[in-house]
């Protein structure tokens, strides 16, 4: 099925917020193609099998909850300790172009 073009790689990179150089596009496109080609065989096997529900998790747990009790978190100083930039107790980030969702 796959035949990943440079444009598609560029699109994926954009969705994933990954800057990629032209050189990288040239190397990634064929690599992704090979990988996707080879992993595509998963759909072959399940195509032939009847009644195979998906397993998203090996553990069959349900209803794991926590009581609604406040727990000590981080101080503002700890919270901001790894921040590339901070101002007035907040994380400072470059201007945002997109809209809130």
């Amino acid at each position: 099925m796959p035949n990943i073009s440079r444009d598609e790689v560029a699109h994926l990179a954009k969705l994933a917020r990954l800057g990629v150089t032209d050189d990288e596009l040239d190397t990634f496109a064929p690599q992704l193609d090979v990988i996707l080609e080879s992993v595509a065989k998963v759909s072959e096997v399940v195509g032939t099998e009847q009644d195979v529900p998906p397993t998203s998790h090996a553990v069959e747990l349900t209803n794991v909850f926590r009581e609604d009790e406040v727990r000590q978190g981080l101080t503002q100083e700890q919270a901001l300790s790894g921040a590339p930039a901070a101002e007035d107790g907040r994380f400072r980030v470059p201007r945002i172009l997109g809209e809130e969702q």
Partner: peptide, 17 residues
């Protein structure tokens, strides 16, 4: 997470990992 759910407050004081 166990952080307090309160309106307002000093910024980044009701936070955890």
């Amino acid at each position: 997470c166990g952080c307090a759910n309160v309106f307002g407050g000093e910024p980044n004081t009701h936070v955890c990992p």
